[in-house]
Amino acid sequence: MSEKSYRDAIRDAMIEEMDRDANVLIMGEDIGVYEGTFRITAGMLKKYGPKRVIDTPIAEAGMAGTAVGMAMLGLRPIVEMMTMNFAIVAADQILNHAAKIRYFSGGQVDVPVVIRGPQGAGVQLSAQHSQTFESFYGHFPGLKVVAPATPADAKGMLKTAIRGRDPVIFLESAALYGMKGEVPDDADFTVPFGESRVVREGGDVTVVSYSRMMQLSLSAAQRLSKDENIECEVVDLRTLRPLDLEPAYTSVTKTHRCVVVQEQWKPFGAAAEIAASITENVFDELDAPVERVTGEDVPMPYARNLELLATPHEEQVMNAVKRVMYRE
């Protein structure tokens, strides 16, 4: 084990996989000479050369689409989106092509492309640079959607993504890049998709989340334990598609109460899918309606005070937990 930042974990995963397999390459805007907006790819151009570290024009459809074509021919391209907000420009390439080619070709081709980049609220990046996309991509069969909350998961799941046979949308939390955590050193350490896990045990309320909101939920759980004597069981989903809710169902069977936390907007968001699935599967176990904590239903404002109001915070999670316990 070594202590690594979330950012370095992502970088290590790419370097290890590029060392392991000559078919792995990375492409994106300003990832080579400029060394990356978030410096995740710093030094990689020098190490691997321009055929494997490809600086592209500002052309998201171009880079996503060419990567899909490379993947169909047996390469394993990683596309770095400067931010996932820009990947909307490549929606046709990702949703109409990458996600469907295996199916409409009757399984004749693999499409092992990884589209990764940061998403979510930063600090005053305003409306076009602060969005989250897990429910957007999670809606589409044929994609895999990953949203790691820790450096170890970021590394292990990125390696799984690169070694897989399907298109993976790898959603990094920009706000977690600096976060540190223990990461296994083993070059073959991978984390499988579709395995949620309990990251904190507790008997009172189940809190289901992923990515940065999982870290926020953990902090809220610690405060509730200390200040209110409430023990939350926190479930980290890790992947949104495939979605493994078994640990959440098991937990709800124990706690009978559930709060789902997401950064994105409430309407049609991931929490709606999760809450509905919990209701469908363990309805009889519930002693209260499933609560959702989400971002406010507005485009992200610029002013710092408004931005903070638009984004979920610990107190909201704590209040929701108390509400499902009828203690508010």
């Binding site: 689409g65 060419t66 169909m72």
Partner: peptide
């Protein structure tokens, strides 16, 4: 293939060409 979105496959073909040379 065989694609139904006008112009959508041009980027794929370009990437495929790159792959053939890369290999």
């Amino acid at each position: 293939g065989g694609y139904g979105i006008v112009g959508g496959h041009l980027t794929l073909a370009t990437g495929a060409a790159y792959a053939l040379r890369y290999q």
